[in-house]
Lab assay of single mutants.
Amino acid sequence: WVPTKREEKYGVAFYNYDARGADELSLQIGDTVHILETYEGWYRGYTLRKKSKKGIFPASYIHLKE
């Protein structure tokens, strides 16, 4: 896992994603996520609506905010 280059990196989910394991994070369309790390097509972070739950999710489900 590699920390993100920018201190504040955010994105928005444009697909729903159902977590398949305890380390994964479920997403709903429109969720804003804070991205902490990246690795081979995956991000690690949390949604702003539930900051206490961190997990991994596919990068392809996220539109990055500039």
Rank of each mutant, 00 (worst) to 15 (best):
T4N: 08
V12F: 07
V2N: 10
K5Y: 09
R20H: 07
A22L: 10
E8P: 10
A13F: 03
L36P: 00
F57M: 03
E7A: 11
A19H: 01
E24F: 06
I35Y: 02
D23C: 13
P58V: 06
P58C: 07
P3V: 06
E37S: 08
I56P: 03
T47N: 15
W42F: 04
R49C: 15
K50N: 15
V12G: 01
Y46E: 03
Y46D: 00
A19K: 04
Y43A: 05
E37R: 04
E7Y: 13
I62S: 01
K53G: 05
A19F: 01
K65E: 11
F57G: 01
W1M: 07
K53H: 11
F14G: 07
E40Y: 06
I56M: 10
K50A: 14
T32D: 06
R20V: 10
G11R: 02
Q28R: 15
Q28P: 00
A19E: 03
K9A: 11
S60M: 14
A13N: 00
K54Q: 11
F14Y: 11
K65I: 15
E8H: 14
T47S: 10
L64Y: 03
F57Q: 03
R20T: 08
R20M: 09
D18T: 14
L64N: 03
K50P: 15
L25R: 01
G45D: 01
T38W: 11
R20G: 06
Y10L: 07
G41K: 06
A13G: 01
P58W: 05
Y17I: 02
L25P: 00
S52R: 10
E24D: 04
E40P: 10
Y15S: 14
E8L: 09
Y15V: 15
G11V: 05
R49V: 09
A22S: 11
R44N: 03
T47I: 15
R44H: 06
K50G: 09
K51Y: 08
I62R: 00
S60Q: 13
P58E: 02
E66Y: 13
T38G: 06
L48A: 07
L27V: 02
Y46M: 04
V2K: 12
T47V: 15
T38Q: 13
Y15W: 14
S26H: 04
R44Y: 15
G55P: 00
S52E: 13
F14D: 06
H63K: 14
G45M: 05
W42T: 00
Y17V: 03
Y43W: 02
R6Y: 10
L25Y: 01
V12I: 12
A59D: 03
E37P: 00
G21M: 08
L36G: 01
G41I: 05
A19C: 06
I29N: 03
N16K: 12
K9R: 14
S26L: 01
I29W: 05
I56K: 10
D31T: 04
Y43E: 00
T4W: 12
R44Q: 04
A13E: 04
P3Y: 04
E37C: 10
E24P: 02
P58S: 03
F14L: 15
Y43G: 01
E40S: 09
K51Q: 10
L48N: 09
W1I: 07
